[in-house]
Amino acid sequence: MADRRFQVARLPGFATIAVLVFLALYLPILTLVGFAFNAENSISVWGGFSLKWFAAAWKNQAVQDAALRSLTIATLSALIATSVATLAALGTTRRPAFRGRGFIYVMINQPLMVPEIVTAVALLILFGIVKQATGYQGLGYLVAAHSAFCIPFAYLPIRARLAGMDASLEIAAADLYASPIATFRRVTLPLLAPGIMAGAMLAFVISLDDVVITEFVKSGGQDTLPTYMLGQMRRAITPEVNAISTLLLALTVALLTAFFLLTRQKD
């Protein structure tokens, strides 16, 4: 008998709507990438193919400083967020159900549910008080803010990996008189490594691309690459901004592709 189950892909006009949606999502990005190779000093008039804007961005000292600052903050934030997320995932997954676990889930994932602007304003107020009390104006505030915001992004793939792991392997290690630390180091951690790497890469990308929290928390002279680009667009938009955006997009796509491949890895 013919399969009569409802399938949305068979609805009339589904393919047309899907094509229009993909065009709306990716046509602006493809346009930006195309005009990054524009020879003219314009973002809307094509004047031939050229790589001069990539060369200009590479030689721009302000771009170099912002890029290095972004990579430093993103790396430190990813390491901190992944470490905390790994401990949280182990504490909420590798033990029997306990009272308050649902509340802990909500608190860990809270940055995903609260509008980012609310988090940014809250951090601005908190760090303003700390700055007045300590006088410290360094990058530590940006690292702390990005780390806190990235924890749930790292937590989700790590917890998903833990939930899919066979706990009997850890039980067998304990039966063979392995200590809890030895079991974690030789059994749990190697199996969990793809999830940890995926969480770290996702946290790195989120931190690297963040604008709102960075704009509220940063002090003078602490522009990251996204906030530098935002400042340039307020003054004069040139294809150099398109070139920087293209390079940032390429890095993000590469990391997200690696994240996708790691999360698909079989046990």
Results as ranks from 00 to 15, higher is better:
176 L>Y: 09
205 V>N: 08
151 I>H: 09
7 Q>C: 01
128 G>Q: 08
178 A>H: 06
226 P>I: 02
253 V>N: 01
41 N>Q: 09
20 L>I: 11
244 I>C: 13
245 S>Y: 02
35 F>Y: 15
52 K>L: 14
235 R>L: 13
173 A>L: 10
154 A>P: 02
9 A>V: 14
101 R>V: 15
161 R>C: 00
248 L>A: 13
10 R>G: 11
131 K>H: 00
192 L>N: 00
139 L>Q: 15
183 T>C: 12
88 A>L: 15
228 Y>N: 04
23 L>K: 06
81 A>W: 05
49 F>G: 15
94 R>W: 13
119 T>K: 14
85 A>V: 07
186 R>A: 12
175 D>R: 04
29 I>V: 15
211 V>C: 00
5 R>W: 03
248 L>C: 09
139 L>T: 15
54 F>N: 07
132 Q>S: 10
240 E>D: 08
77 S>Q: 06
53 W>F: 13
26 Y>S: 05
212 V>N: 12
95 R>Q: 12
122 A>R: 02
109 N>P: 00
54 F>D: 05
181 I>F: 15
229 M>G: 02
95 R>A: 10
112 L>Y: 04
204 F>T: 13
259 F>W: 05
81 A>L: 03
86 T>E: 10
84 V>N: 00
183 T>L: 02
224 T>V: 10
50 S>T: 11
62 A>Y: 02
253 V>R: 03
131 K>Q: 15
86 T>S: 13
23 L>T: 13
6 F>N: 09
34 G>T: 08
116 E>M: 11
98 F>E: 07
173 A>E: 04
104 I>D: 07
75 T>N: 03
40 E>W: 08
180 P>K: 02
29 I>P: 04
63 V>R: 02
190 P>A: 01
134 T>F: 05
19 V>A: 11
89 A>K: 02
40 E>Q: 14
218 K>A: 15
225 L>K: 02
211 V>E: 00
212 V>C: 06
74 A>E: 01
141 Y>W: 10
194 P>A: 03
82 T>C: 07
220 G>L: 12
135 G>L: 03
248 L>W: 04
44 S>R: 06
185 R>N: 08
158 I>C: 07
5 R>H: 05
267 D>M: 04
80 I>M: 07
176 L>G: 09
6 F>I: 12
31 T>C: 06
109 N>H: 07
138 G>M: 14
27 L>D: 04
75 T>A: 12
30 L>F: 14
25 L>N: 01
180 P>C: 04
26 Y>I: 15
72 T>W: 10
